[in-house]
Computed example of a mutant assay.
Amino acid sequence: MEFSCTSQQTGGLLVYTVTGDVDLAAHARFQTDVDAAWPSAPTDVVFDLSGVTFLDSMGLRVLVQTMQRASHQNCGFALAAPSEPVLRVLELAGVTSLFSVVGPLPDGEPDPDPVS
């Protein structure tokens, strides 16, 4: 499945919706899409990963670096409804506990306070 990453700013929350295969071929575009939408003011960040069909170490790298970036800026960070392929990679890499995981975002609208 073809990779895509879109973003939507809603109030104090930035939601990235990621779909398709997040692999070596897509990771540079993934990083570019994240950087292009990164807010200038502190904003909580959620990645909706429900539509990700494949995630490799390079895609995971983008998520970890973005989580660290959010942390350095005192912003919340969460993964929303990660798909089975995403959960499997997080578990295999031993990084599951690094991420806050929330349920699905209702109707594409972010929960007003999903990040703790």
Rank of each mutant, 00 (worst) to 15 (best):
M1Q: 11
M1S: 02
C5T: 05
Q8A: 15
Q9L: 14
Q9S: 12
L13N: 01
L14D: 02
V15S: 05
Y16T: 08
V18G: 01
G20N: 10
D21Q: 15
V22T: 08
L24M: 11
L24C: 10
L24H: 14
A25H: 08
A25S: 09
A26N: 04
A26R: 02
T32N: 15
V34P: 00
V34D: 02
V34E: 01
V34A: 08
V34R: 03
D35F: 15
A37S: 10
S40F: 12
S40Y: 14
S40I: 14
T43K: 10
V46T: 03
D48W: 00
L49N: 07
S50L: 00
S57Y: 03
G59F: 07
L60A: 14
L63Q: 04
T66N: 07
M67P: 07
Q68I: 13
R69I: 10
S71Y: 10
H72P: 13
Q73N: 13
Q73V: 08
Q73E: 09
Q73D: 11
N74F: 01
N74I: 10
C75I: 06
C75T: 10
F77V: 08
A78S: 04
A78D: 04
A78H: 02
L79S: 00
A80Y: 01
A80D: 00
A81C: 15
P82F: 12
P82E: 04
S83L: 13
S83W: 06
P85L: 02
R88M: 15
V89P: 01
V89C: 03
V89K: 04
E91A: 12
L92D: 06
A93H: 03
A93L: 03
A93W: 12
T96R: 11
S97G: 03
L98D: 13
L98N: 13
F99G: 07
S100K: 09
S100M: 02
V101P: 04
G103E: 04
P104T: 01
P104V: 06
P106C: 08
D107N: 11
E109S: 12
D111R: 06
P112G: 08
P112T: 07
P114D: 11
V115R: 03
S116T: 12
